[in-house]
Amino acid sequence: MKESHALIISQLVKSYGNVQALRGVDLEVAGGQIFGFLGPNGAGKTTTIRCLLDLIRPDSGSIRVLDLDPQADPVGVRQRTGYLPGELSLESNLTAERALRYFSDLRGNTIDWNYTRQLADRLELDLKTSIKNLSKGNKQKVGVVQALMARPQLLLLDEPTSGLDPLMQREVYRMLREAQASGATVFFSSHIISEVEAIAERVAIIRDGRIAEVVEPQRLIDLAIRRVHVRFRESVATEALDRIPGVVLVDQHDGRATFQVEGEMDPLVKAMAAYPVSDMETERPSLEEIFLTLYSN
């Protein structure tokens, strides 16, 4: 066991009846990292995370979480872990505070309640409101608070900002960076590329129950096809730009052109220097587009 690793997963296999959800996942996550876990729907993200907490049992393979085997010592793993499920369900007849007190009870009342209130205040969450009267976004805030309130060594977050508005998303990113700064490892799944780009240091892509890539987020974006919209001061001939490797001119009219760029932007930007460019805008690729680029190769 490498002590610097928060997670080591090797050859993890899990089936649900005839459906093989994980087909041999291999993954190592260094301690103290913010690690993104990406994949299309049904790729095995949630199944992997739930195996880490012993909520489901793998058919074969091994897992080490903070140097512990979740099947042999599930309580030990959970003691040091904060978890936010992808489909968060809370007891609807409790208030947010009552729900958090119950979770605190399950941790043996070792929670710093002032810190919990601070987290709730930062997310503008009213703890006195009944769960059944909370919006989806506010329920998600309860989920974020309960995951962070014990200051765990490892955070396992399945789509942590799902349902939150952009302001609150940014606040959650700040909280995760603070958790990392205090030594925690953050392992999160996401569908939002800007989120991955904003906070993740490394990213694993899971596809069909196997890890397809482990890369830095920027590398992912570089790999993907992007659209570049250019407005010229006057009508120009752009055929030369179309001949740049990795660049395809997809539309041109009224002094505007749209290019599709695969790989780095550098050749296009340099070629543009010869043209009277009045405006240039790059469209960020969606996660789906990134997957498409990766998997079509």
Partner: peptide, 15 residues
């Protein structure tokens, strides 16, 4: 069925 057991069992509580 309500989906709340998933989170409860992610806490340091044994089955």
């Amino acid at each position: 069925e309500r989906g709340t057991l998933d989170l409860t069992l992610a806490y340091p509580v044994s089955r």
